[in-house]
Design a protein around this nucleic acid. Sequence first.
DNA 1: CTAACTTCCGCCGAAGATCGAACAAAGCCC
DNA 2: GGGCTTTGTTCGATCTTCGGCGGAAGTTAG
Lengths: 385, 385
Amino acid sequence: MTPQPGSAGDVLTLISAGSATTRSDLARLTGLARSTISQRVDALIERGLVEETESGESTGGRPPRQLRLHTEDHAFAGVDLGATHCRIALMDISGDVLAECEDKLHIGEGPDKVLGHVDQRLDHLLSQAGRPRKALRALGIGVPGPVEFATGRPNNPPIMPGWNDYPIPEYFEGVEVLVDNDVNVMALGEHRGAFPDTEHLLFVKVGTGIGCGIMAEGKLHRGAQGSAGDIGHIRVSGHDDAGCRCGNSACLEAVAGGAAIAHRLTELGLPAESGADVVALVQAGNTQALRLVREAGRLIGEVLASLVNFFNPEVIVIGGALSRVHEHLLAGIRETVYRRSLPLATHHLSITPSRTGINAAVLGAGMLAIEHYLSPDNINRIVNA
Amino acid sequence: MTPQPGSAGDVLTLISAGSATTRSDLARLTGLARSTISQRVDALIERGLVEETESGESTGGRPPRQLRLHTEDHAFAGVDLGATHCRIALMDISGDVLAECEDKLHIGEGPDKVLGHVDQRLDHLLSQAGRPRKALRALGIGVPGPVEFATGRPNNPPIMPGWNDYPIPEYFEGVEVLVDNDVNVMALGEHRGAFPDTEHLLFVKVGTGIGCGIMAEGKLHRGAQGSAGDIGHIRVSGHDDAGCRCGNSACLEAVAGGAAIAHRLTELGLPAESGADVVALVQAGNTQALRLVREAGRLIGEVLASLVNFFNPEVIVIGGALSRVHEHLLAGIRETVYRRSLPLATHHLSITPSRTGINAAVLGAGMLAIEHYLSPDNINRIVNA
DNA sequence: CTAACTTCCGCCGAAGATCGAACAAAGCCC
DNA sequence: GGGCTTTGTTCGATCTTCGGCGGAAGTTAG
C-alpha cells in the first residue's frame, strides 16, 4: 500500500527536495525520534545514497553535520529527441549536469538507428564523466509524439515514421527507461527547474507545431490516453479557411505555428521554411515577421484564455523555438488572455518565457528518470534489499 | 506525514470502498498479519465505526464474518444551495440517504436567513431519521458561485449578494463544514455515484449558466484560485454580437445557456424566462425550441472539443436543468466533439447524460462531508484518541 | 582561559507494534 | 463422525521505535 511514513524513502525524499539538510531537520519534519532518524540515515549512507559533508553553522550549540545526496555512484540521463536533433544530458542524482551533447539526427531514420546513436552517445558521455556504464540507473526520453507512458511505446506519432508501438525501453538493457511526450518532459523540466513550488502550471511550446504540458498538483497530467495537452488542433475563430494537416480547419497550429507563419511569410515574398527562419527574420527587425508573430501570440492567447478559465493555472510558461522572440509573442498572448479570461483566474496568473530555455526537455527527461529512481517505494526496495 | 500503511484509517478506507468485506480480505490487501488486522478491526468496532454482520458464504471452510460500516451512530448531510432552491439530504456513513427535503429559497436573502433555514431543516431531518443532533459529524454545502475551499468563504460570487467572504463554516457549531462550488460537488456526486473507477471526468452543468466540474485522478481539480471549470465565459466563434454579463462578448453562456435560449425564444414570440421554460417547450414538441437546444449543444460541443484535446478525459457527463432534454443537447455536443477533437482523445471517450440527475449536488456535497470524515488521518485521530 | 550553556548525535534499555505459530471455531465433504 | 478447509483469536518471540543519558563540539559569559 502506501509507503511507510518516515521510511528511508521518505527521509531521502526530504533530503533530495532540500527540505532537510540535517538529522535534526529530519526529526522535526517527520516527527520521528532522533535515534530513529539516525538509523535511517545510516542505512542510506551505507547504500551510497547519502553522504555527510562538513559541519554546518552552529546555532549556539554543536553544529549539525550536513547531509546531501551522494552524487558519485549513480548517473542518470535525459534524452531530448526532436524531429531533427538529439540532445542528451548526463546528470548526477541531484540533477546537476555532468556532460551533455547535441547532434543533428532525423527521427525518421527509425528506432534502431536513432536509439543506437543514443546508446553510443551515452557511453561517450559516461566515459567523459568518468563513470562506468553500470552507474547509469535510469534514463528519461522525450519524443515528438504521443506515447503510452506505462509501456514507453509511441502511439501513432505523425512525425515518427517507423516508431509506432515500438517498445523503446526494451532497447536498453539493465537501465530503467521512461518515455514521454517531449512537451510533457519540457513542462516537467521547467517546473522542477524554475517553478518547483507552483501547483498548477502550463508549459506551452510554440515551435513548428504548438503543444502544451500540464502540471496539476505538481505532477504531470497525461489524461486518459496520454494525449492531454494537445492544444495544437483547438479551433480558433475567424480562420476557417486555414486547412490543417489533421484534416480539420482553423486549428491553432495551422494559423499560429512556426510552420504556418513561415508559410505566410513565404507568400509575402519573404522566403522562410521553419520557425527558426521566422525567428531570424524577427531578430533582423523585419516588421512583417514581427507583425505575424504578434498576431500568432493573439491567437495562442485566445486558446489560452479558454484554458485559463477551465484549468486555472498559476503560471503559464512559453517555450519552444519561437519563444526566442518572446517579447512579441508574449505581448500578443498577454493582451488576449487578460482581456478574455475571468478576473479571478487572471488575478494571480503570471505568463512568462521559459527560464530553462533549450534545456527544458533534457532536464525534464532527466528529472523523470531521477524522480522515478528516488521514489520512496524504489528507495525502500533498495534499502531493504 | 503520510498515514501509516495498514493503519486503522487505511483499513476503514478499504471497508468503506467495498474493496474488503472480511478480515481475510483485509489481510490479503494490506499484507498485514491476520492478528494485526483483527486488532485494527476491534478498535474500529469499539469506536462504533464498523460492525459485524451475519456470517457470509463459506468457501469450503469456516465462513468469514462480514464487516461493514456501522451506519447507526453517525449522520452526514449534503446541502445543495441554488439560486432559488435548497435541497438537503441526510445520509448515513455509507452514503445512503436517510431523509431529504427540498424548498424554494432565494440565496439572495443572505447568509443568516439561508443558513438559518438550513440549520432548521437539518434538525427536522435528523429527528425524522431518529438521530440526535450530535450524531451529525460533517456537512457538505454546494453554493452557486466561486468559493475559497480551504476557508469556506464565497469569493465575489455574482449571484449571491451579501455572501462575499462570509465564513460559512463558522455558522455551524460542533460540525465540520466543507463548502464548494455547486458544479464541483455535482461532479463529485456523479463520479462517486456513477463512475467511481473513472480517473478523469468532466461534469458539464447546462442550466441558466454553464459550468464544469473537473475530476482529475479521481479527485476534484479546483485550480489555483478555486475557479477552475468556469467554462461559461469561454469564447465561441461566430457570435461576437452576443454580449455577456461578464462584459465580454461571445461567451458560451451568453449563446448556449438556458437564459440565452429563453431570451431568443422570447424574441421569436415564444415567451420563455428560464431553462425550465425551454425544457417545457422542447418537451411539448416545439421545433423552434428543439432547434435552439440542438444548436446550443453544437456550441457547447465546440468548447468541449477544445477541452477534450487539452484535458483528455475518459467521460464527459452532461447535467443541469437542460440535460432533461439531453437527447437533443447531446446530439449537438457529440456531433461537434467527435468532429473537432483528435481521434486519440475521442476513441475511448464517452459523452453521457447525468445518471444521478437532480441528486448530483446533494450526493456530492454529502460525499465531500463523508470522505472528509473517513479520511485515514481523521480516522486514525479518532481511533487513537 | 575557563565554565556554563546549547545543540547534535550515538548508545542502550524500555515500551510498543507486528508477526507467526498454535489453537479454537465453524462450516463442507465423504 | 472424522478429516479438510478457511476463519479468527491468543500469546510469546521478534523487530521497531522511543526517549533518556552522556559524550562531542561548538557558542557565550565572565
